[in-house]
Design a protein around this nucleic acid. Structure first.
Lengths: 140, 140, 140, 140
DNA sequence: GTGGTCTAGACCACA
DNA sequence: GTGGTCTAGACCACG
């Protein structure tokens, strides 16, 4: 896992970390049941306070993404959203709208936008695939 | 101009607005000398406090992006360092990736995701269309 | 309202404040709907950080004792516990047990203990009564 | 000795235990030279970590209240500054008031409250009685 | 060693 | 002016 925080973005550091972990989970870089970096070492590596990392992990735990065991560590849970499908779609629409609005502001045509979306979906699919291959080939 | 704020992103609302205007200016969606939405209506549309919009405009004015003429409104001053097309795509890819990661954690398949994206594109196209109609027929 | 915190007691300061407010509400010193001291002035008076007072108030709000209105202030709610009677008795038993254990350790006989309890109940009843009298006599 | 810890009080558990032993020593419930409960059984009874009990004993030893004889156990060293009866009552009144305030917020009437107190006194009396019986008959 | 809590300072949103 | 959030340092409970 490689992490990177941007102090000038205005986005809270703890959310940047949480997003990167979500990203790693979605791209297969982090697999179900695998343990996350411990709070203290990660904080030192990123030159931030322990509590900031702890808050990122707390956020993820409250959302059911990870599980934390005091005295043991934090682990990626198997994804299993507690929401109904319509509720999940509604949440996703917010994210999609944000991207579409950005596209308008950046003067990118709908067709180009759709092309980019498809590109990125393929990009993620390839990453997950290669992570799976690494899993089967690397652990025995 | 289409605006959108996300209260859960952790990024201060006034910065979200300022960024959207900066992006629009740097990609040509807003032209030099063009007028920005007035503070009060924009605040009402976005359901936020007028002071927050005013703060976004103050931020942009202090950076020389816009000019405020008391009693007249706010106008785009200079189109500063327009983004190249690759630069704009890179910014957009960040937003798209965020939506894709969210889709993974919400357990929404790629096909469903693409369907939602197309739906929302149509939704916004209609919105822009009716705004244009209102502009030509109703406001002069 | 008079507040007092003890830094050497080992008990978190924010809990000391919350307890004192609960105490004031139970003894009639603070009446339903009445506003609590604002966070910042109270923090200055007690020479502690704003957040410590804010946490005490947050604790009370989460327990339904007070109501906080951003930008306006914090107000005492009408007591109306959300728990069932058996659940409330169970919670109270914990407090009672703590007092009884202390009595054992302090070598105070059961009879003396019961006498003290009755004394304190009367003491509170008198305080509530005089607060009520002040309410009817002092506001018109 | 009867022990009780309250995880929600905010007061560190090791201090709660140390205080209870100090109170018992200062009021005569524990006599000079008498042995304290062993660390491991006490930790099991209270469902806490052995280190936490050890820390309470270490605190008391550093203050000269008890003496630890490795392999033998812990013993009360000196009865330090015994409390007068009024002082003991004052300490107890704090605990009783806390229970009364809780009763108010839990909307439990004075009569019900007194009933609960009598119930709990009987409960503890039975507990102490059976402990005494066990001591004489089962432990030597 | 692990994660969790309490106190604090600085900044944000809002009336 | 009001309350709320993010980051941080020090201490606690536990394996």
């Amino acid at each position: 896992m490689l992490f990177q925080v941007n102090f000038k973005s205005g986005k809270p550091v703890y959310l940047q970390i949480a997003d990167q972990i979500r990203h790693a989970a979605a791209s297969g870089a982090l697999r179900e049941g695998e343990s996350l970096p411990s709070i203290r070492p990660l904080a030192e590596e990123l030159r931030i306070n322990r509590n900031t990392v702890a808050k990122a992990y707390a956020e993820l735990e409250s959302q059911g993404v990870i599980e934390t065991v005091p005295g043991k560590g934090c682990f990626l849970k198997t994804v299993n959203s507690p929401f109904t499908k319509p509720a999940r779609q509604k949440l996703l629409v917010q994210e999609i709208d944000q991207a579409i609005v950005a596209a308008h502001h950046l003067q990118i045509e709908d067709a180009d936008f759709l092309g980019l979306v498809k590109d990125r979906l393929k990009h993620f699919a390839r990453k997950v695939e290669s992570a799976e291959a690494g899993k089967h080939g690397g652990e025995p």
